Simulated assay, not measured.
Amino acid sequence: MILADTRWSGVHGIGRYASEVLPRLSVEWSALEVGGRPSQPQDFLRVRRAPRGASIYSPGYNGFIARIPQVVTIHDLIHLHPTTPRRSVYAAHYATVLRPLVRRNRLVLTVSETSKRVIEEWVNDDRVRVVNAGNGLSAAFRIHGPSEAAGPYFLYVGNLRAHKNLDVVLKALAQTDDCRLVVVMNDRDGAIRRAAEFGVAERVDVRSGLTDDALAALYRGAVATVFPSLVEGFGLPAAESIACGTPVIFWEGCESIAEISRGQGVSIADAHDDLEWARALSATLADRPQASEFAAEYSWDKTADLVSTTLRER
């Protein structure tokens, strides 16, 4: 009996992954009946015992104190990155709860080859199998379809967390003429305040609550998608953008985005150099790359099949 933690389901990040993968699983499962938010550090205390013969699958990074088989999904180790608030709390949880759980079960799922390598180094146990089940893309993200046509603009899809490094793009925008930045973000007020701090509020258009079709149209109409992150486990907006035929401008040290772009993006040598970012924006604006077909390797069906096979073997 597989008990799946459905509490992660949502529209962004792990929530999107859970919402797409769980309904596609080809193994029989039931919802794990537990309350609270799975992202809370004390969540591991919520399940101390489970029915005999049961195992637990989580599409997120949470596990439980119960001594039963558990398969968790560690999308990345961003919680351990120096830019993460309350990093010491996460570090303690990962060291005392999550790593022992992964070692005990000798199996963990992840979403990219970059995350797989980082997790293998972190878990530091050759007995643990790290399985890259990948990520998927909605059918909306394809090269052919409607596109936004409201003047030249760059696109940013993300949030204001420190590791996303959006400030460098706002600084660069202030040095780049004749273009706008469209920001897709739930925190509309926060994005507007941040843009005002750098004197570009009148050139930043914040959108939220978009459907996949509307977001795909924004990707297709953009000169490029900017992805200034310092670290990512995968970077779904980068894959979505390239699938829509729009290149990504990114920091070359962010390995997962380099993995996704595979030569179809514009890399920046210094993540924090706003002058270099400004030059890249201007160059891309002056010589806009032609859209090219992208052989998408990312499929929710494929990911769910890999997860199902892993659970079945476990």
Rank of each mutant, 00 (worst) to 15 (best):
S26N: 09
V27N: 00
V27K: 00
V27S: 02
E28Y: 03
E28A: 14
E28S: 15
W29Y: 15
S30G: 10
S30Y: 05
A31G: 10
L32R: 02
E33D: 14
E33G: 10
V34P: 02
V34D: 01
G35A: 05
G36S: 10
R37M: 13
R37G: 14
R37V: 08
S39P: 01
S39W: 12
Q42G: 13
D43H: 10
F44N: 01
L45S: 11
R46E: 04
V47N: 03
V47L: 12
V47T: 10
R48Y: 06
R49M: 01
R49Q: 07
A50E: 09
P51M: 04
P51C: 02
R52D: 14
G53F: 11
A54H: 08
S55Q: 15
Y57S: 05
P59W: 04
P59Y: 03
P59L: 03
Y61T: 01
N62Y: 11
G63K: 00
I65P: 02
I65K: 08
A66G: 05
R67Q: 15
I68L: 07
I68D: 09
I68W: 08
I68V: 15
P69F: 13
Q70M: 13
Q70H: 11
Q70W: 09
T73M: 01
T73E: 01
H75G: 06
D76Q: 08
L77Y: 12
I78L: 15
I78T: 15
I78N: 13
I78P: 10
H81P: 07
T83V: 13
T83C: 14
T84S: 05
P85V: 12
R86F: 11
R87G: 07
R87E: 07
S88E: 05
V89G: 01
Y90W: 15
A92T: 12
Y94L: 04
A95N: 11
